[in-house]
C-alpha cells in the first residue's frame, strides 16, 4: 500500500450520512391522506395564481419561510462555522409580513415581467409525513418538487428540490408554520425565483 493510500485509509472520513433517521410516530392513514391532499391542493391554488387566498388560508402568521443557500464545501468542513458574522442567507428569509409585501407587489399590476402571464406548474412527489417528535400533534411533511416555468415565447426552466414543512391544525384546517425549501442548485440557474412553493 502506498503512503498516500495508507494515509487515506487510516483517516476517519466523513463520506456518507451515518446518522440514523429520527424515530417519530407515524400518521394514521386518514391523516396521511389529509396531509397529501392538503399539499397537492395548495400547489394547484398557487398554479392558479390564487396567491392572496393561499396567503390567508394556508400559512400561519408566525410562519418562517426560507430558501437557504447550500454552501458547496468539502465534507470534512460541512459543519464548520462560516467565517465572520453569518446570519445565514437565502433567496427567502421571510416572515408573514414580508411574504405579504411580495404578494402586494404582484397585485399592483405594475410588474412588467408578469405581463403577459407566465406559466408555472408545480409537481409534488415523494410526500412523506410524520408526527413531530415533540408531542404537539404537529406534522413534519417532506416533499420533492419539480417546478416548470415557461415565459415569453421560449424562455423555459425546470427546477428541482425539496420542501420540508411543519404543519399545525388551526380551527380544523392544516396550516404551514415553517417551510424550508432546498433548491438542488448552488447557483440558481433560473433568472429569478420570485414564486411561491
Amino acid at each position: 500500500m502506498s503512503a498516500v493510500a495508507e494515509k487515506v485509509a487510516g483517516k476517519k472520513v466523513c463520506a456518507v450520512n451515518s446518522e440514523p433517521p429520527v424515530e417519530r410516530e407515524q400518521l394514521p392513514m386518514e391523516v396521511m391522506f389529509e396531509i397529501e391532499r392538503h399539499l397537492i391542493r395548495e400547489a394547484r391554488l398557487l398554479d392558479e395564481e390564487r396567491i392572496r387566498y393561499w396567503y390567508e388560508n394556508y400559512l400561519t402568521e408566525d410562519i418562517v419561510y426560507s430558501m437557504p443557500i447550500n454552501v458547496s464545501r468539502y465534507r470534512r468542513e460541512q459543519t464548520r462555522p462560516l467565517p465572520g458574522t453569518n446570519p445565514g442567507a437565502g433567496a427567502f428569509m421571510d416572515n408573514y409580513e414580508l411574504i405579504g409585501m411580495r404578494i402586494t407587489r404582484l397585485e399592483t399590476g405594475l410588474v412588467w415581467m408578469e405581463d403577459p402571464q407566465n406559466a408555472i406548474r408545480r409537481f409534488l412527489t415523494n410526500i412523506d409525513a410524520e408526527y413531530l417528535e415533540d408531542g404537539s400533534g404537529d406534522v413534519i411533511a417532506y416533499s420533492n418538487f419539480t417546478v416548470y416555468r415557461n415565459r415569453r415565447q421560449r424562455d423555459q426552466t425546470i427546477t428541482y428540490g425539496q420542501k420540508v414543512d411543519l404543519l399545525r391544525k388551526v380551527d380544523g384546517k392544516w396550516r404551514c408554520y415553517n417551510r424550508t425549501i432546498h433548491m438542488d442548485q448552488r447557483v440558481i440557474l433560473d433568472k429569478n425565483v420570485y414564486f411561491f412553493l
Partner: peptide, 9 residues
C-alpha cells in the same frame, strides 16, 4: 460582507 454569497445566473 455577510456571506455566504448568493449565486445566480
Amino acid at each position: 460582507l455577510l456571506g455566504p454569497p448568493m449565486k445566480s445566473i
